[in-house]
């Protein structure tokens, strides 16, 4: 399927959000995810089914003022 991941179009074979993170080698308890503008909690990723052209945001901590 085609997804828009952090603003960039990518083709990834993944049925759920957890699959997608694993396939793209994202790991860490400090990651936050949203799909189509809605937060998806860590514990809900495995049961969250993705659709074609879903917009996925993967954020992580960084320095800030």
């Amino acid at each position: 399927m085609t997804f828009i991941i952090n603003g960039e179009e990518q083709q990834v074979a993944a049925a759920t959000l957890a699959d997608l993170l694993s396939t793209l080698d994202y790991e860490g308890e400090w990651l936050a995810t949203a799909v189509n503008g809605e937060l998806v909690h860590r514990e809900d990723r495995a049961g969250f089914t993705l659709g074609d052209r879903d917009r996925i945001e993967i954020l992580s901590p960084m320095q800030g003022g």
Partner: peptide, 22 residues
């Protein structure tokens, strides 16, 4: 301390180091 969030592009290892530091 104040911190922020940004798009993760490298799998999360660099941001993990910052998270641990904090």
């Amino acid at each position: 301390v104040t911190v922020s969030l940004r798009r993760e592009t490298s799998g999360g290892k660099a941001s993990g180091a910052f998270f641990d530091l904090i």
